[in-house]
């Protein structure tokens, strides 16, 4: 994200200015925190035990997504080919 910060920030669309992006990150992290904090108020009655643990959807979602991305990457090293692979059928 921060790799492509241009110098003339003011000329860019307001949404992609460095400042906006920083604000969006702050907002996003705040939202993450709030949703987890809601676990104190709301009773998410779990059925299987594990799903009743604190912040289960949060950590479960994060971990499975990371696992899926890494899994996909690993599979990709075996299965990915140039996108012209089938062109000389």
């Amino acid at each position: 994200m921060s790799a492509d910060v241009p110098k003339d920030d003011a000329h860019k669309h307001w949404l992609v200015r460095t400042k906006t992006i920083r604000r969006l990150w702050i907002l996003f992290i705040a939202a993450l925190a709030v949703t987890v904090l809601f676990d104190f108020i709301v009773d998410r009655h779990g059925r299987f035990g594990l799903d009743a643990t604190f912040g289960f959807p949060a950590w479960y979602g994060l971990l499975t997504c990371v696992a899926m991305i890494i899994g996909a990457k690993a599979l990709g090293t075996v299965l990915q080919r140039e996108d012209t692979y089938y062109d000389h059928e």
Binding site: M1, F28, A31, L32, T35, V36, F38, D39, G55, F56, P57, A58, W59, Y60, G61, L62, C65, V66, I69, I70, K73, L75, G76, L79, Q80, R81, E82, D83, Y85, Y86
Partner: peptide, 25 residues
């Protein structure tokens, strides 16, 4: 919670998601 933290995973691992000119068998 589920969706926002999935989003977090996406943005954290964004470098891993960089698109390449490939297809998948």
């Amino acid at each position: 919670q589920l969706l926002l933290f999935s989003g977090l995973a996406f943005f954290l691992l964004l470098p891993q998601m960089k698109r390449t000119l490939t297809l998948t068998l």
